[in-house]
Each structure stands twice: as C-alpha cells, then as structure tokens.
Amino acid sequence: MNLFRLLGDLSHLASIFILIHKIQTTRSCRGISFQTQALYVTVFVARYIDLFFRWISLYNFFMKIFFIASSVYILYLMKYRYRPTHDPSIDTFKVEYLVGPAVVLSLIFNYKFEFTEILWTFSIYLEAVAILPQLFMLQRTGEAETITTHYLAALGAYRALYIPNWIYRYFTEDVVDPIAIVAGLVQTGLYLDFFYVYFTKVLQGQKFELPA
C-alpha cells in the first residue's frame, strides 16, 4: 500500500458517497446512467469473487464488500426507489458493445486460462470502458448537475491516482501488472475531455455545459 493507491481508493469511496448523496438529496437519479452503474456491479462481482478463496487484508476485504454492496444499493435506488426520475430514452448506449469485446479480450489476453482468473481479467477490461454510457449520456444532454460532475471527477481521480501507484510499485516492489496498467491507462484517458471541462468550467464556478 502506498499513498497514491490509498488516495485513489479514498477517492473511489468518495465518488460513491457523492453519488448516493446526489440521488438522495435531489430525490432523483436524473443525469446518471443506469447502464454504467449496472456495469460497475458486474465489474465488482466478477472481480471480487475472490473474496471466497483469497485473503489479502482486512482493508481489502471491507473495501470489496463496500463496493459490491454500495453498487447494488445504487442500482436499487435507480430501479425502484427513484425509478420515475430515470429517463431510459437518453441512456441508450449499447452495453453489448462493451461487454462483448471485454469477454473476448479476457479470453485471449489473460495471465492464466482459469475461470476466476478470466473473470478478473474481464472485470479489468470492462471497468476500463464502463463509464462510456455515462459519458455518452453527458455528451447527449450537453450539461450536468454540478454534483454529478463532482462524482465523475472523484471517479476519474481514482483512476488517475492508480497510475503513479503503479510507477511507485514498479520501483519499490518490482511489481508490474501489464493488464491492469494498459486497461487503467485507457480508462483514465476516457476522462480527459471531461476533466478539461471540469477544471475550466465547474471549478471556476460555472455550470457544466458542453459547447453546442
């Protein structure tokens, strides 16, 4: 564990709290992609299946439980509690285009051809692109509530912080995980456009609006 990794994980936690806070205070899941949230549940369940056979640490254990539980809770909020506030007509990204390639890639590029290992790899590839339905929705509507942009910024920061974490681990522990790194770089790259608008508009006190 190093500082980058810890800050990354805390940023990830923060993003989830921000999202739940947004849904509960506005009593609405407007602007949030159900598809992206459903993909995150898939990612966490596929990756953290190792809860049953691999012990890493208490920290690791509780974080995994939290990510699975909170992501399922968010789906519940969107699907049942605040269902009328979700507009499926603007959340139309075809998730098959993400899940399909993630399955195929994980079958080809993995460390070991074993069921749980392939699930782990699949979860890494899927997480890399899971934000796309959300970004697509943002692009379509061209604007976002400020709180939603804070959620995305925290989520993007989590991914960005994992990069110095890998560099640090390379030098201190001699650990290199090419699958996680390549997928992580792709994932972080997807946030660049968003970050540009976030820093130049939202943090200057303006509303998040994309040029028409």
């Binding site: 691999r54 890493i56 290199v176």
Partner: peptide, 10 residues
C-alpha cells in the same frame, strides 16, 4: 511480472 501482485488492488 503478471499477477505477481496477487490481484491485491481493488
């Protein structure tokens, strides 16, 4: 190299 880190990241 590879999964040497034992997938200890979240």
């Amino acid at each position: 190299y590879g999964s040497a880190n034992g997938h200890d990241e979240l």
